[in-house]
């Protein structure tokens, strides 16, 4: 691994192994709060459990499980990300100037993920909320199948189209969409509900943040307000209440 110049806040990862790369990153972050990673070649676990007050800017392609267990830190990727970004993340912010792979935000409990373009399958699976921990995923493009599977809390805002098996087993939280999903794509036990005033405020706030992150980068028009959105919520927080008999 080579360190560019003497600048403490830039690290070039090259083809170094993830264990070595992450150790260098942690060492560097003991000294500085903001670190830029260059020539990133799919190293896994970048920003793993990154705490509050620390920031990573990533140039190149981060590997799987980026921002796993993220704990308040912020990560901005100038390119696309791979699978399982924000796995079990607790707090913080992830911004992807590109697309990302499967299972983004698996079991995330807090913080937010902004994806400029598409995401793979199973985004937001098992996402959950608790008190002031209200996780958010904003997807600028299309989502793969099983968006919001087993979702138990939090918010997903999708600007593009969802795939099949939308919200299978969802029992908490809310998904905002622009087009009503086809009946075969939508899983049973999910209700399409009209927006309330608080939903509008929420959506417009998130659109504003999306615009602030990616304005000038996206060709499609970013919706100006919440007018064309609808929301999906679970019909019950206990979808399996009558599944079992003791």
């Amino acid at each position: 691994m080579q360190e560019r110049d003497t600048a403490q806040d830039v690290l070039s990862l090259g083809t170094s192994h993830f264990r070595e790369a992450n150790e260098r990153i942690r060492d560097q972050l003991e000294r500085v709060d903001r670190l830029t990673l260059e020539e990133v070649f799919a190293q896994r676990y970048l920003g793993c459990a990154l705490p509050q007050g620390k920031h990573l800017a990533i140039h190149g392609t981060p590997g799987n499980d980026m921002a796993a267990y993220l704990d308040g830190g912020t990560i901005e990727v100038f390119g696309s990300a791979q699978d399982q970004i924000g796995n079990t993340m607790n707090d913080g912010e992830v911004i992807i100037h590109g697309r990302c792979g499967d299972a983004a935000g698996y079991a995330m409990r807090g913080g937010c993920i902004f994806i400029r373009d598409d995401c793979g399958w199973r985004a937001g699976i098992n996402m959950k909320e608790y008190q002031d921990k209200q996780p958010i995923i904003v997807i600028g493009g299309d989502a793969g199948s099983f968006l919001g599977e087993y979702m138990a809390g939090g918010t997903i805002l999708l600007l593009g189209n969802p795939g099949d098996h939308l919200a299978t087993g969802m029992h908490g939280g809310v998904i905002y969409l622009r087009e009503p999903p086809s009946t075969h794509a939508l899983s049973s036990g999910i209700t399409i509900a009209p927006l309330a005033e608080e939903d509008r405020v929420r959506i417009e706030q998130l659109l504003g943040r999306y615009r602030a992150c990616f304005a000038g980068e996206v060709r499609a028009n970013i919706p100006a307000d919440a007018e064309e959105f609808l929301k999906l919520v679970p019909a019950s927080s206990r979808p399996y209440a009558s599944l079992y008999a003791n």
Binding site: Q84, N87, E129, E149
Partner: peptide
């Protein structure tokens, strides 16, 4: 998780579909 909601553990870990994926979780 909020009071009164079902706590659902899905059958698989949705980040594990192979031994390689298990390795990924172990190392994370």
């Amino acid at each position: 998780i909020p009071e009164g909601t079902d706590a659902i553990s899905p059958a698989p870990h949705h980040d594990i579909y192979s031994i390689e994926d298990l390795r990924q979780l172990i190392f994370s």
